[in-house]
């Protein structure tokens, strides 16, 4: 299982456009993708409602995990989305 800690640089946090892009990228992946913030239970990165319920803001750290072929490449993409403006 691949895991990545990502500090959110996106000004709006994991909301609005970045959240949509994040979920779309995760949904295109065959395996399971999860994202967690702090001690809260991880949510599916394919669920926009789950991702938004994290309330991840600019400067927060999230942990993204993925299982399956191409997991590392997917995590690269997701980290990039969380950091873009």
């Amino acid at each position: 299982m691949a895991e990545r800690r990502v500090k959110i640089e996106s000004k709006v946090g994991l909301h609005a456009r970045p959240a949509s892009l994040f979920v779309k990228a995760a949904s295109a992946f065959d395996g399971d993708v999860h994202v967690a913030k702090g001690d809260a239970a991880p949510v599916s990165a394919k669920s926009i409602l789950g991702v938004m319920s994290l309330g991840a803001k600019h400067g927060d750290e999230i942990v993204v995990t993925a299982e399956g072929e191409g997991a590392e490449a997917l995590l690269d993409t997701l980290a990039e989305i969380a950091n873009a403006d």
Partner: peptide, 16 residues
């Protein structure tokens, strides 16, 4: 379009 696409993602949410 961004708003509407985010809404479409909500309707397709696997958790929901």
């Amino acid at each position: 379009q961004e708003v509407l696409e985010a809404q479409a993602l909500m309707a397709r949410d696997p958790g929901l």
